[in-house]
């Protein structure tokens, strides 16, 4: 029996993470079902001035291709996207990305709140937000906006996080739907995958 209930078709998953999230992300991406039916958009804090290397490091073990989107690139299912270094990543109503170099938020660019907030605006209740380990509060408000618009919210179990400030911030802002360990998030995505006829 599944412990998760899926009562609607989701259109996108957005994942935020910072310090201590890399191993978790790799585990999620390496256990992703093949031809995953919806896009995964990741905003992870990263070194601002190192443009190359991160997407390659994630791609090594990922089942799906990981790419850094160009400005105005369309969002496609089956793809995993990573916010590029030193840009904020927004989602637009026409289901495409846009980039910006606006001021840092929570000392971060890319800022997770921007990616989560714009995703929530576009996908409303058809969005799943996942927030992992991290050392600042970025993403906390973004998770509230997802919840407020009817989306599903998941945070990494704080006890499993290397640094639990980020998931705890989200839990402070809103009533998170699922608090899960990485293995359970992997399981969640597998069960979600089964909801879609391919």
């Amino acid at each position: 029996m599944s412990k998760f209930k899926f009562n609607k078709k989701y259109k996108a998953i957005v994942i935020g993470g910072s310090a201590g999230s890399f191993q978790g992300i790799v585990k999620i991406l390496s256990n992703l079902p093949e031809h995953f039916p919806i896009p995964i958009i990741m905003c992870l804090h990263r070194l601002k001035h190192v443009r190359n290397g991160f997407v390659e490091a994630l791609s090594i073990k990922s089942i799906a291709e990981v790419t850094e989107p160009h400005d105005k690139e369309s969002i496609k299912k089956g793809k995993v996207y990573l916010a590029p270094a030193n840009y904020h990543l927004s989602i637009e109503l026409g289901h495409y990305f846009s980039l910006s170099t606006e001021e840092m938020i929570n000392n971060s660019r890319p800022a997770i709140d921007i990616t989560l907030g714009t995703s929530a605006y576009v996908y409303r209740d058809k969005l799943i937000g996942i927030l992992l380990s991290g050392a600042n509060r970025d993403g906390g408000l973004g998770m509230k906006w997802i919840k407020d618009r009817g989306g599903l919210t998941i945070v990494q179990e704080p006890s499993e996080c290397m640094i639990d400030t980020m998931p705890k911030a989200a839990m402070g802002y809103t009533n998170i739907d699922h608090v899960l360990k990485i293995d359970q998030i992997v399981q969640f995505l597998k069960e979600l995958d089964k909801q879609y006829i391919k």
Binding site: S90, S98, S100
Partner: peptide, 9 residues
């Protein structure tokens, strides 16, 4: 102008 950044401005 691109909607999301213009709105933030």
């Amino acid at each position: 102008y691109a909607m999301s950044s213009f709105k933030r401005r």
